[in-house]
C-alpha cells in the first residue's frame, strides 16, 4: 500500500502537501526557538528558508526524485551547522571541454544549470533536463505558497 502510494507521484506537486509540511516545520521552529528573542535574526531566516526547501522536497515525494533526494541529503548533513544552500561549483576541465567538440557553449550552460539543481552535478544531461523541469515546477509552487502565507499574515 505504502509503495503504491509512492508510485502516485503526480508531476504537479500538491500545494496543500507542501503547505502542510512547511507549516509544521514553522510550528516546530517556533517551539524550539521562540521568535520573540531579538537576536540571531539571520539564523532564523535561514532556518525558515531551509524549512521551505525541505518541505518542497518532501512534497515532491521525498526520495522519488534525484533532486529532492539530493536536497534532503544535504539538509540532513547541514543539520546543526549554519544552513547555506550553496551550490557546489563544477569546474569544466579543459580535458572535458576538448572531449566535447560538439557544442562547448551548450555544455557550459548545462554545467551552470548543474550548479543550480540539487544533485545536478551527478546527472547525465537528459536526466538533468527532466529533473530541472520538475524542480522548477516545485520551486514555483513553493514561492506561490510562501507568498500566500506572507499575504495572509500581513496586517490588513
Amino acid at each position: 500500500m505504502a509503495s503504491a502510494d509512492k508510485l502516485i507521484n503526480t508531476d504537479v506537486p500538491e500545494k496543500d502537501v507542501f503547505a502542510f509540511h512547511f507549516l509544521q516545520s514553522l510550528s516546530n521552529l517556533r517551539k524550539q526557538n521562540p521568535f520573540d528573542t531579538p537576536d540571531q535574526k539571520n539564523y532564523r531566516v535561514r532556518k525558515i528558508k531551509k524549512a521551505a526547501y525541505v518541505s518542497m522536497a518532501r512534497a515532491a515525494g521525498g526520495s522519488s526524485r534525484l533532486w529532492s533526494r539530493a536536497l534532503l541529503r544535504r539538509a540532513d548533513k547541514d543539520d546543526n551547522k549554519i544552513v547555506r544552500f550553496s551550490r557546489r561549483k563544477w569546474k569544466i576541465s579543459s580535458k572535458r571541454r576538448r572531449s566535447n567538440q560538439r557544442a562547448p557553449v551548450v555544455e557550459e550552460a548545462a554545467e551552470r544549470l548543474r550548479n543550480l539543481v540539487p544533485g545536478g552535478g551527478g546527472m547525465e544531461t537528459s536526466k538533468l533536463m527532466e529533473e530541472t523541469a520538475h524542480y522548477i515546477k516545485c520551486l514555483s509552487m513553493q514561492v506561490k505558497v510562501m507568498q500566500c502565507l506572507v499575504d495572509g499574515l500581513s496586517p490588513k
Partner: peptide, 18 residues
C-alpha cells in the same frame, strides 16, 4: 530568480512571525 524570491519571502515570513 525563484531562489531569490524564496530568500525574500523567508525574510518577510521571519519578520511577520516575530
Amino acid at each position: 530568480n525563484l531562489n531569490k524570491e524564496a530568500d525574500d519571502l523567508s525574510d518577510r515570513l521571519t519578520q511577520l512571525l516575530e
